[in-house]
Design a protein around this nucleic acid. Sequence first.
DNA 1: GTGGTCTAGACCACC
DNA 2: GTGGTCTAGACCACG
Lengths: 130, 130, 130, 130
Amino acid sequence: MLLTIAFESDIPLYQQIKNQIITGIAQGKLKPGESLPSVRQLAADIGINFHTVNKVYQQLKQENRVVIHRKSGVIINPDLKLQADEAYRESLTETLEVLFAEAHLRGGTREESQQFIERIYHTFLQEGSK
Amino acid sequence: MLLTIAFESDIPLYQQIKNQIITGIAQGKLKPGESLPSVRQLAADIGINFHTVNKVYQQLKQENRVVIHRKSGVIINPDLKLQADEAYRESLTETLEVLFAEAHLRGGTREESQQFIERIYHTFLQEGSK
Amino acid sequence: MLLTIAFESDIPLYQQIKNQIITGIAQGKLKPGESLPSVRQLAADIGINFHTVNKVYQQLKQENRVVIHRKSGVIINPDLKLQADEAYRESLTETLEVLFAEAHLRGGTREESQQFIERIYHTFLQEGSK
Amino acid sequence: MLLTIAFESDIPLYQQIKNQIITGIAQGKLKPGESLPSVRQLAADIGINFHTVNKVYQQLKQENRVVIHRKSGVIINPDLKLQADEAYRESLTETLEVLFAEAHLRGGTREESQQFIERIYHTFLQEGSK
DNA sequence: GTGGTCTAGACCACC
DNA sequence: GTGGTCTAGACCACG
């Protein structure tokens, strides 16, 4: 998977990387059991400090999205089961509320937003195979 | 309109305020032409420094959401016309992509997300009634 | 002469009024010897505090643009002779420099600017009659 | 580029700095891609508070004149494309109108003004050479 | 070391 | 009383 970084963005570099890994997993570009490049490797590829990549991996580990094996490196957690707990749902609601309020004020309709979501979900892996 | 601030949140105070004003406008709780409290007033009400409120107002002004009327203070721009330019749409897409990727990984379905949006849009003012 | 005030502008009310009087004189809408409305009259017409109008008149008087007669009110100085001293020229240069730098960055050409000036000067009274 | 500040001027410090940066860009003293000193650095150089410099940078960022690059600091936006929208042209017209009305009243002729502009434009970078 | 955020207090211009 | 400007000092996130 190819990572693209915007140095001039106001989103922190580590966050950008993390975001892309998460969507990568959702879209099946990164499959459970697959391994990620080493901290130093990825850092060199992107051209950033390896501490930054390390931060990402540590957080992904803490969130149970990856497991870190000695020597075999970082691999996507094969049996990932994330919870949608109350705190998560609440924060998501608030975030979306602002985003769509803004979209609404800029002339975006409900239908457009629905299609937006539709298109995004189409890029995700189907759960049907489960 | 009542503003609620979460001091323990990692979202900056000024951002929280700004968010609530924006959704307030979208939901019609704040109507075009209506005036906002003075910087010092609002700051006192919330219990924060007036510079923080001022920052919000300055940004809202620069984004053309409010007009700073001499002596009548800050009022919601009566003829607000925000653009959904390319840069905006792109950034929105990316943001939503990550959000729903995360939702997807936590078991959220497309249908749930659609209903989410549906509910949010129901809280907004209809364009027709304006 | 009709004065138009923008309450939401960030230019002070008194400055707006003063500006319009000055351009009014340059364009011959206000002729030397002609009288201006009384402080209270003008304030009422525009719908602002009379102190604000008073401030304008005082400044105009100080700059020798008007003379204030007891009872006969404020009249445009019939034999106005303003100096273009060094300080003035310098400040004008700096102001124009920034303005046209901005215009240049927004794609305005030298020719356009010249035509701009041309058009403005056409609205002024000719000095030929002097 | 050297910044000169007039502490006794009634133009706000941050505005003076901003003006000089803008004309600096127009004159090619500051080239796209070039980086500006850090807020604290510039503040120390000039001998003012860093918040004042920060204010300038924030505004320049919002106006798309600079990009705040993570770690390489603030750089002049390499692909700057500013619009001369209707609002801008209108405000420019009004400003120039007053300025030249004043110049006219102080004995400045149309020819002098034209030469003024001519000289200013000569200090700007030619579009062709870029 | 860099910018981002927040607080605090002071002075001023405007109305 | 309102916003605008400036200073000062503190803490934090980021890289």
